[in-house]
Amino acid sequence: MAIETTKRTMTLNLTDAEMQVLETLSSQKDLSKTAVIRQALRLYQLVDHRLASGEKLFFEDEAKRQKELMMI
């Protein structure tokens, strides 16, 4: 995607549980909280578009020979 240089600031209201998840992901991935939120947006945009196009999202565990359809 073409780069967008202008950035806007917003306040994010999260519950304690949501903030805990954000902090854990931030720590595990070595990313700032803003970067984690950006990652979530990118993933959501991509997945939402593909689902809207009629595709399905699966998780597969080759070792257990399991395939799980994600209902989103």
Partner: peptide
């Protein structure tokens, strides 16, 4: 792919022509 924020394309231009291209996924 460039319809999505998860992708970014970078080129290197020299003497008026693109000399190389790269497509990267910014989805970590």
């Amino acid at each position: 792919l460039l319809d999505f924020m998860a992708y970014r394309c970078i080129g290197i231009e020299c003497e008026g022509r693109m000399q190389g291209l790269m497509m990267a996924s910014t989805l970590a």
